[in-house]
Nucleic acid binder design. Structure first.
Lengths: 219, 219
DNA sequence: AGTCCTACGCTTACAACGTAAGCTCGTCAA
DNA sequence: TTGACGAGCTTACGTTGTAAGCGTAGGACT
């Protein structure tokens, strides 16, 4: 099993994991076949023995991210289940910001992705949702989660200090009084100590869950 | 003004517009500097007289898409204003599917983008929203719109017939009974004649607006 | 009229990318 | 012992973004 020469052999899993690590560390744009090979102490072309092409690599990485999302246990109540899964999904997309952009460009879902969606639907259906209402719920929640992750990934800062710095240079460039309300929001809210954009997530999520609960009750 | 030789001169506007047209017609991945030059009957390097680099080009194109979104008129009631603008935004992102992915990778907003955001905030504030509640509303609606557009852009089909075809090959590959609820949803709902994923958009949107209205009333 | 400057488009060149084609060589079954 | 197989390597090609510098036409000024 273990080869007598020093290094353990490549495998699809090792390639995907290394790709994920590289994208996490230095961004998706710096994930090239040559650099990925380097990280694995292998020539670029050797990767093609385990991955059909770069698209296949990205598909596999995307599926790995989906596999990190916690799935609701069998028989869980729909509302906490949806809430937990949405929070878990956002956390996964936040750990791997490049993945949000990939979701849009890669069209063929992997097994973890399919399993994920199927479990969500099961939870809704056993929670009393009709098929059309389950479709509504699924679409609304997923759109919100992806969209939030997309915006979060776009923010060019992670900490409050960085935010302040960015806002500073932004306003310097844009003549603050041309966008008075944007300025107001930034100065009196976003730049306040303790502000955390991530906290917005649960507010909007609960807005949607409230609405779905009402819609379900009206059935 | 008009040069004596045949062709009218390049300009940043012409370059951006041609880029947008090319991306619309053949997808973002086929937008290369050489092809863009060809479309304008110019060599690739000439474009750099009007655009700093490809990133600048993409930023400009993104801002053009934002400029297509209808802004609420002064003094409009917040709820119809938010509704119309969300619908208009989705329509613009649907016309230019590549733009949704760009929003995530491009960090520096253009003037149309800033103006757009500022107008939205103005409408909310004059509608009675406090700054924090306006932030909540802004974040929730925008996340939903982008997320929906992202999912819509991912769908590998445009018409119901194409959808049926795609579903067919997908299920053939994935052993239908491994994902029973996904199968149920697809067969009894998505593949029904007249199904239109786009219709889901307004359902989720109204869910959010209902919630915001309630939150505002509770102030 | 002659001179110069400035824009703008063109040419050439290069490093980095994804990947096709074919090679090498260690491992193991027969 | 042999022969096949498969993982990793080498080489090579076309395409990409863009740096550097050239040519030239038109307008401004003397």
């Amino acid at each position: 099993m273990v080869p007598p020469n020093g290094r353990l052999p490549l495998s699809r899993e090792r390639v995907l994991a290394a790709g994920l690590a590289l994208a996490d560390a230095h961004g998706l744009e710096s994930l090239t076949m040559r650099r990925l090979g380097e990280a694995l102490h292998v020539e670029a072309m050797s990767l093609y023995k385990h991955v059909a092409n770069k698209g296949d690599l990205l598909d596999g990485m995307t599926d790995l991210v989906f596999a990190e999302i916690a799935l609701p246990p069998d028989g869980a109540a729909w509302r906490p289940a949806m809430r937990d899964r949405a929070i878990s999904a956002r956390a996964a997309l936040r750990r791997h910001p490049w993945a949000t952009a990939l979701v849009s460009s890669r069209t063929s879902p992997g097994p973890a992705t399919l399993r994920h969606h199927d479990t969500v639907l099961r939870t809704l259906r056993t929670g009393g949702f009709s098929v059309p209402l389950a479709a509504h719920a699924f679409s609304a929640i997923d759109s919100y989660v992806y969209g939030f992750a997309l915006q979060e990934a776009t923010l060019p800062f992670d900490t409050a200090e960085e935010a302040a710095e960015v806002a500073q240079t932004m306003f310097a460039r844009m003549a603050a009084d041309r966008y008075p309300h944007l300025t107001e929001l930034t100065v009196t809210h976003v730049l306040q100590p303790g502000y955390d954009y991530g906290a917005e997530f649960e507010y909007g999520l609960d807005l949607i869950l409230d609405g779905l609960e009402r819609a379900l009750a009206a059935t």
